[in-house]
């Protein structure tokens, strides 16, 4: 402290300021925050963190981009022929881009749980619990930031895909549809990675657990090759794998025709026959995984003794 004179100046200016606060009081002052205000505050925080965190960027964007280029370059000719046997007249680039869009969603979803674990480890989780922010809004804001990021990243993938020759038959509406499918797809894995985070409360276990699942889920699905040419056991697994439903719905939008492999629907006589079953299955899977994650999250943030 410098001098006592500066002290007294400080108290004077202070009491002047706080005179206003007496009238308002802590509770009234606080009422400026709404549910959506709380969502926004957390949305902003997680966006900032995503930009700063190299893990987030590499895992959820760089890695899928590497896949996109390596797969099209290395397997393009061979896989292209196989694809053309089932769906004539399309390039492997066009076939692969929807799968990479789903991969982006999957990888970005892993970072959701990792973010939660980091928050628990560095004390921010508890710090936020002590604030008057609405707890649902806190979680919604964080998830909204992840969903937003997935949307941006799928857009980047679609743009890169177009650069290397992939075509979106359904145009801009189809592109928006693919982003929508990607986001809907991501939610169950967001929920799953948060579940892992709460159960393990450990960053490495969460990353390993979620990453370990990423590749089997992708390869044992219709993502990289048509199901028809894959071994029987893979086909069986693929029919139970949410990735198949996400990829087939996104791919139907990409190609402008029904390429849903598991569920045959002819009701709409359009691309919707390929999209609607996938969307329905994903929504159901989201609900189940989401319910588990919400239950665990609310238990973890409750003040009941454990």
């Amino acid at each position: 402290m410098s001098a006592s004179s500066s002290e007294s100046t400080a108290s004077e200016s202070l009491s002047g300021d706080s005179a206003a606060e007496v009238a308002v009081g802590p509770t009234a002052e606080r009422s400026s925050n709404t549910f959506f205000g709380d969502v926004w505050v957390n949305f902003k925080r997680w966006n900032l963190k995503a930009v700063r965190n190299p893990f987030v960027l590499v895992v959820s964007l760089v890695q899928p981009i590497i896949f996109l280029f390596l797969f099209t370059e290395v397997f393009g000719n061979v896989a292209g022929e196989a694809v053309n046997r089932g769906i004539p007249g399309i390039t492997y680039e066009t076939y692969l881009v929807p799968a990479i869009a789903i991969q982006v969603a999957l990888a970005a979803a892993i970072t959701s749980g990792v973010g939660l674990v980091n928050d628990i480890e560095n004390g921010m989780y508890e710090k936020v619990l002590v604030t008057p922010m609405n707890r649902t809004a806190v979680f919604v804001g964080k998830t909204a930031s992840e969903v937003f990021r997935i949307g941006v990243q799928i857009t980047i993938i679609l743009g890169l895909g177009a650069l290397i020759g992939a075509e979106i038959a359904t145009g801009v509406m189809g592109a928006l549809g693919i982003i929508g499918v990607g986001i809907l797809f991501s939610l169950w894995f967001v929920a799953f990675s948060n579940t892992l985070a709460i159960l393990t409360r450990d960053q490495e276990s969460t990353i390993i657990g979620a990453n370990l699942l990423q590749f089997p889920l992708l390869f044992l699905s219709s993502a990289f090759l048509p199901l028809g040419i894959l071994p029987g056991w893979i086909q069986t697994f693929a029919r139970l794998n949410p990735v198949t439903y996400g990829v087939d719905a996104a791919r139907s939008l990409m190609l402008g025709r029904d390429v849903m492999t598991v569920i045959e629907l002819t009701r709409f006589q359009s691309v919707l026959d390929g999209v609607v079953p996938g969307v329905a299955v994903l929504a159901a899977v989201d609900l189940v995984f989401g319910a588990v994650a919400v239950y665990l999250l609310s238990r973890a943030s409750s003040s009941d003794v454990k």
């Binding site: 606080r30 505050v41 900032l48 560095n122």
Partner: peptide, 25 residues
């Protein structure tokens, strides 16, 4: 809290700003 609780990925200024918003300043 007993354990230092800050967001390491945010700047000092951003950490305090976040707290301001969280508490409805």
């Amino acid at each position: 809290a007993q354990e230092t609780s800050i967001d390491p990925e945010l700047t000092a200024q951003e950490n305090i700003s976040f707290a301001c918003e969280a508490y409805g300043v």
